[in-house]
Amino acid sequence: MTTWITVCDTCKTEDWEASGREQKDGEVLAELVEACASDRADVKTRRVSCLMGCNHGCNVAIQGEGKLAYTLGRFDPAEEAAEAIVEYAALHAESKSGQVPFRQWPQGVKGHFVTRHPPLPTDEAE
């Protein structure tokens, strides 16, 4: 089943304004994540302008239909972070529930989890 990585492309790390960079950190991370996921059939990417986690920038959401969803943040816009995000998303895609055992987490996502959301009910009565 497909797992989606949603990357906030408006995120800025604390030093962004002082750095003089024109491109926002979220844009850089989005490009890196897209490149890392480009040859994967089980992981798709998309960008959104603002996940409302500004204090945790750079932010991503990991989601799959009928599965637990996660928001991760506090990433540096770097290749290592992008690789870990995509690796975790692939493990999420393999998992029936979306839960990945801690021992399988890539080192690069440890300490970056912000929230976990249960899947939406499949029946209005649930």
Rank of each mutant, 00 (worst) to 15 (best):
A41H: 00
L51M: 15
G64D: 01
E27M: 12
E27T: 11
R103K: 15
H92I: 12
A93V: 04
E65I: 04
S38K: 14
G108W: 03
W16I: 06
R103P: 07
V114K: 14
K96M: 10
G73T: 06
C54G: 11
R21A: 14
S19D: 10
G57Y: 09
L72N: 13
E126L: 10
G20S: 08
R116L: 06
F102W: 15
L91Q: 15
D123C: 02
C58L: 05
D123F: 01
G66M: 04
R40W: 00
P118D: 01
V60R: 06
V60L: 11
K110V: 15
T2R: 11
G53E: 10
C50R: 15
L72T: 10
P118L: 01
E17D: 14
K12E: 14
Q107R: 12
D25N: 13
V114M: 13
L91G: 09
Q63S: 14
H117E: 11
T6K: 07
W16C: 12
W16S: 10
I62R: 07
N55T: 08
A90N: 08
S38C: 03
I85C: 01
Q23C: 00
D25T: 04
A125P: 01
V28Y: 05
V114L: 13
A35F: 03
R47W: 03
S95V: 03
S49R: 15
T2K: 12
R116H: 03
V114G: 00
W105F: 06
R103H: 09
Q107G: 00
L91V: 08
H56R: 11
P119Q: 07
E126F: 03
M52F: 15
G20Q: 09
G108L: 05
G64Y: 00
G66E: 06
V109N: 02
D39G: 05
Q63R: 14
P101W: 09
V109M: 05
N59I: 03
H92C: 08
C11D: 15
A93I: 07
R74G: 08
L72K: 01
A82Y: 06
A30R: 13
D42F: 00
C36T: 05
I85R: 01
A89G: 11
S49P: 08
G108H: 06
Q63H: 08
M52I: 06
G26L: 00
R116W: 01
C36K: 12
A82T: 08
E79Q: 14
A84T: 02
C36N: 04
A82C: 09
A89E: 05
V86S: 01
E17G: 13
L91W: 04
L120D: 06
V109R: 02
D123I: 02
R21M: 13
A41W: 00
L32K: 15
G108R: 07
T6V: 11
L32P: 05
E80S: 14
E79T: 04
C54W: 05
Q63P: 01
F113T: 15
K44V: 08
P101E: 12
R21N: 11
T6Y: 03
E34H: 07
G108Y: 03
Q99E: 15
A37V: 05
V60I: 15
G26E: 12
